[in-house]
C-alpha cells in the first residue's frame, strides 16, 4: 500500500532528472485527459461493433441459428439498452449473469454449441480477435447513451451485489492483495495511471462506463471478463473461470456503483 502511494513516476524525454517524485499536477492530468479524448475520437473500436453485429446475425453452430433471439434481459432479441441493465437475474438459468456469461448461454441454447465450444477461445489477440470480443463490443455499443440502471431488486441480485462487495475487499493470494488494494482509496496511482476508486460511485461511473474497451497499447478490444481475469493474475489469485460467480459478482458490484452514469462504451484506452 505505501509502496503504491509513493510510487515514482519516470517520464522519458523532456523531464530532465530521472527518479523524480512527480505528483499528478493539473497540467499532467489535463494533457492525459486530452490524450484520452483524442484517442476516443479517432478510435477504430466501431469496427469491432460492426463485426459483432454481423456475428450476432450469423447462422452458426449445430442448430444453424443466429443470436437474434438471445434474451439479454429485456426480452428475446432486444439488444438496445440491454448492457446498461446487466448483470441481472435470469429465470431460465436461475442465476445472475453478466453479458459474457449470457452470451455463452445463448450460444449454447440457441446455436447448439457446447459450453466448452463456446468458451474455447474467449480472449483473442491483435491479429485474431475472439468472437466474444466482437459480440461484447456490439452489444455494449447498443447501450451507448443509455443510463446505467442495474437493479438489485430481486434477492438473487442483492445477494450477488453483496458477494461482489465482499470479494472486492477480500485479501487473498500470495501477495495479500484485494481489489481495494489498488482501487479502494483515493489518490493512488501506478506510474501515470490514476487508479479509480471502484467501490464508490464517482470512480465506478467514470470507469465502468468505458468497458469493454479498445486498448491502443495492444490493439485489442478487451472485455470486462478479461479485465477481472487480468486483475486476478496481477494479484496472484488463481485464474477465475469465464463467467464464474465471482467474476459476475464483482462486475455486479462495479456496475451498480456506476448506476446513474451514462454508458459510453465501448471505450478506447491506453
Amino acid at each position: 500500500m505505501r509502496a503504491l502511494r509513493g510510487s515514482v513516476l519516470l517520464v522519458a524525454g523532456a523531464l530532465a532528472t530521472a527518479a523524480t517524485l512527480v505528483r499528478a499536477d493539473d497540467t499532467t492530468r489535463q494533457e492525459i485527459q486530452k490524450y484520452q479524448r483524442m484517442t476516443s475520437e479517432s478510435s477504430p473500436v466501431e469496427l469491432w461493433e460492426l463485426q459483432g453485429a454481423d456475428l450476432w446475425k450469423a447462422k452458426r453452430g449445430p442448430k444453424n441459428a443466429s443470436l437474434e433471439r438471445c434474451d439479454l434481459g429485456m426480452g428475446p432479441g432486444v439488444v438496445k439498452g440491454a448492457y446498461a441493465h446487466l448483470p441481472r437475474y435470469f429465470k431460465d438459468t436461475g442465476r445472475v449473469q453478466d453479458l459474457e456469461s449470457r452470451l455463452v448461454t445463448c450460444m449454447t441454447t440457441l446455436q447448439g454449441f457446447t459450453e466448452a465450444e463456446a468458451t474455447k477461445r474467449v480472449f483473442g489477440n491483435a491479429d485474431n480477435p475472439s468472437d466474444m470480443e466482437y459480440l461484447a463490443a456490439y452489444v455494449a455499443g447498443q447501450s451507448r447513451g443509455t443510463k446505467m440502471q442495474v437493479s438489485t431488486k430481486l434477492p438473487q441480485e442483492k445477494e450477488t451485489y453483496e458477494l461482489g462487495k465482499k470479494l472486492f475487499f477480500y485479501r487473498a493470494g500470495s501477495w495479500d492483495f484485494s481489489c481495494a488494494s489498488c482501487h479502494g482509496t483515493e489518490g493512488k496511482r501506478i506510474r501515470m495511471q490514476e487508479l479509480p476508486v471502484l467501490s464508490e460511485p464517482a470512480g465506478a461511473r467514470g470507469t465502468y462506463t468505458t468497458w469493454p474497451g479498445y486498448r491502443v497499447s495492444v490493439s485489442q478490444l478487451k472485455t470486462m471478463q478479461w479485465r477481472i481475469n487480468d486483475c486476478f493474475r496481477q494479484q496472484r489469485f488463481p485464474e477465475p473461470a469465464y463467467g464464474s460467480e465471482a467474476t459476475v459478482a464483482l462486475t455486479m458490484f462495479m456496475a451498480v456503483n456506476a448506476n446513474g452514469a451514462t454508458y459510453n462504451g465501448p471505450g478506447t484506452k491506453r
Binding site: E31, I32, Y35, Q36, M38, V216, S217, S219, R270
Partner: peptide, 15 residues
C-alpha cells in the same frame, strides 16, 4: 494539435 502526454506511444492522435 496533440496531447503533450501520450499514455502509450503506439497511438498518438494529432490534428
Amino acid at each position: 494539435d496533440l496531447p503533450e502526454i501520450a499514455e502509450n506511444g503506439a497511438v498518438v492522435p494529432i490534428e
